[in-house]
Design a binder for these strands. Structure first.
Length: 615
RNA sequence: GGUCCGGUAGCUCAGUUGGAUAGAGCAUCAGCCUUCUAAGCUGAGGGUCAUUGGUUCGAAUCCAAUCCGGAUCACCA
């Protein structure tokens, strides 16, 4: 919890006038209400006994105590409770509440201008506003997890942006965060692109074809599937069943042999594998750098795929697992409503889930984390449920604190993305297009003609990527979302560039009128509607960070930051800042603008989106 | 078939520890640039919150049933 000195709290001597200075105004109101109910009715209530909401715009007031449940337990009419409680709050907490009205079961309270202006005075220049002090807790966030046989696509982008943003949000909530990635660099699917390269490439390389390495390898993965399909078809024509043909196709047999050779460590296969993977990594590096992803630790499946075997033995000893007659090892999860799950094949090799059990333990031993978050698509909900259950049954450390941040698939307006049908949206192509679009818009508007070429490139990147990240992060992670190409390059309305633009607008004013040059508040003239509206939403920022952290949900921040920008823009249109009615108003508005810019910058940073000074 | 997730405006999404007349953006229509950046602002139209029943002062939100969509239930990863 943040702690800030309550300069704006005036101590009046009454014991009941103790203030809860580091709290949000909502918590404050809850505490005051509890105290009031106790004083008035000599009965103990908790915050769960009544509801506090933001007052609807059509009514007078800032926050509302919903009294229906109180009416029931006190057996009193709303007017009675409302006038007693409202009167009490105004009398006992004059620094917080200045007026009230009662409509049906709603007690609407007006928060004093003193409260808002003191908040503004104290927080307007605080770039760490809303962020919590380090708690000493450590959390691992695993995300991205690409395969080394094809380039990154739209689905990976959602994953990467989510992982990055959740890491930033957790940092803001006081966690130490370790970002990790598990690279799926081995297995039959990796061998497919290797075999296709051997058969069809004639020694071509990314350099010889001027192709980005991951795309280069990706074409051979596609080529494999095409050629394999042809082989299967011709075998079917020659009389085999489809199943037989799929097994007997020469390409598949070669691939399976290659996998065996890889596992046996045959030098020529290992060399080819290393070479092709290095091509892919060169490509990934470029993409990760462009989209602003990075990791503190990268695990490779080629190193981890043998993990977990000791654990399987321990599980047998503990009778968590059992062995079937053929030698394969299983766990029975039917009492949990799941199925039986294999953890070791009859040939003694470990399966996908076994590696994950091993990796969990390895990560724990390495980092001693308090929580381990996996950013993985919802198609793996079952897998992750089983993983956690097994870890718990084995009594592995911190198994209860495995959290699957399950996100929904990204679909296209035309339907689902399918790698094999070529309906995927490539990450690099998309980034290119977004940057190109931002260039076009910027040139049309012609506001930054004095920028150098380098500055312009940086700006196009900021806007293009900002639009894309915001577009993918503004939706609740767990929901399947639709990617609409036209909508994604729209820079108006609920978009990243809209928020960035609002920031640039403010900065333009502050360059002319630095806020530091002004005397401190207090302010005597009453706050106008839009001034207060801005302060009300700015006051909510710490709570938003907390909520986003608790829910592992960046869309909470995206929605918030958009609303802040929207309210600021209304305010900006309605009220002049530099040429305000009075000097006092000018000071207040400059500070409001400063605080708004800081919150926008801070919130966007939690989404991994920089904001420009000009655009 | 079992399990899980979802269904809110033409489209994309908010809103669900039960609260006032269900909100944004896009799209459509009507306005606003001698004035701090119009990537902006103001206003209008647009809803059987999938359906039905239940719980209660009050249901988009909770419960039950039904319909529709998706994911998953591999000795693949």
């Amino acid at each position: 919890m943040q702690v800030y000195a309550p300069l704006y709290i005036l101590v009046t001597g009454s014991i009941r006038n103790t203030y809860f200075c580091s709290m949000s105004i909502v918590s404050q109101l809850q505490q005051c209400t509890i105290a009031g109910l106790k004083a008035l009715y000599e009965r103990p209530f908790t915050a769960a006994d009544f509801q506090v909401n933001q007052t609807k715009p059509e009514f007078e007031g800032d926050y509302t105590v919903v009294m229906f449940s109180l009416m029931k337990s006190l057996k009193l009419a709303p007017e009675e409770i409302g006038s007693a409680l409202g009167g009490y709050l105004i009398q006992e907490y004059p620094n917080y509440f200045s007026a009230f009205n009662i409509i049906k079961g709603f007690l609407n309270l007006t928060v004093t201008d003193t409260y808002w202006t003191s908040l503004l005075q104290e927080k307007h220049a605080d770039t760490g506003y809303g962020k919590k002090a380090m708690s000493g807790k450590k959390v691992m966030v695993e995300y991205s997890s690409p395969n080394t046989n094809k380039p990154l696509h739209l689905g990976h982008l959602r994953n990467n942006f989510l992982g990055w943003s959740v890491a930033e949000i957790l940092k803001a909530n006081g966690y130490e965060v370790i970002k990790s990635c598990i690279v799926n660099d081995r297995g039959i699917h990796i061998c497919k692109s290797m075999i296709a390269w051997q058969f069809f490439a004639n020694g071509a390389t990314p350099d010889s074809t001027s192709t980005k390495g991951d795309h280069f390898v990706g074409t051979y993965y596609v080529r494999f599937n095409d050629e394999y399909k042809k082989q299967v078809e011709s075998l079917v024509v020659s009389g085999l069943t489809k199943e037989e043909a799929e097994k007997e196709a020469p390409l598949m047999k070669a691939t399976q042999q290659m996998l065996l050779n890889w596992e046996a460590g045959k030098p020529d296969v290992i060399d080819l594998w290393k070479t092709m993977n290095s091509w892919v990594y060169q490509g990934f590096d470029i993409t990760y750098k462009r989209i602003g992803s990075d990791f503190d630790i990268i695990y490779y499946e080629s190193n981890t795929y043998l993990l977990g075997k000791d654990i399987v033995q321990q599980g047998l000893d503990k009778k968590v697992f059992y062995k079937k007659d053929d030698g394969s090892i299983w766990i029975d999860l039917t009492t949990e409503g799941l199925d039986e799950k294999i953890v070791q094949r009859r040939d003694g090799t470990s399966v996908y889930i076994t590696q994950d059990i091993g990796l969990h333990l390895q990560k724990y031993e390495q980092y001693k984390f308090d929580q381990s978050i996996y950013v993985i698509g919802n198609e793996q909900n079952y897998h992750m449920k089983v993983l956690q259950l097994i870890c718990q049954k084995l009594g592995l450390p911190n198994a209860d604190n495995i959290f699957h941040l399950s996100y929904g698939m990204v679909e296209l307006t035309t339907g689902k993305m399918k790698s094999r049908e070529g309906t995927v949206v490539d990450a690099d192509d998309l980034v290119d297009e977004m940057i190109q679009t931002s260039r076009q818009h910027t040139e049309e508007l012609g506001k930054v003609k004095d920028f150098t070429a380098t500055e312009l490139d940086a700006l196009y990147n900021t806007i293009g990527l900002g639009a894309m990240k915001f577009y993918l992060l503004r939706v609740d992670p767990k929901k399947t979302m639709v990617f609409n190409p036209e909508e994604s390059i729209d820079f108006h309305g609920f978009t990243g560039p809209f928020v960035q633009y609002t920031h640039a607008r403010i900065k333009s004013i502050l360059r002319k009128e630095p806020v530091t040059a002004h005397t401190p508040l207090p302010v005597l003239s009453p706050l106008l509607k839009l001034e207060k509206e801005l302060l009300v939403i700015l006051e909510q920022y710490p709570g938003i960070i907390e909520q986003a952290g608790d829910e592992h949900n960046p869309s909470v921040v995206a929605n918030y930051v958009f609303n802040v920008a929207k309210i600021f823009n209304s305010f900006y249109t309605e009220h002049p800042i530099v040429s305000a009615e009075t000097e006092e108003k000018k000071h207040v508005r400059l500070k409001l603008a400063t605080m708004t810019a800081n919150v926008i910058r801070s919130g966007m940073q939690l989404l991994g989106i920089p904001v420009p000074e000009r655009m």
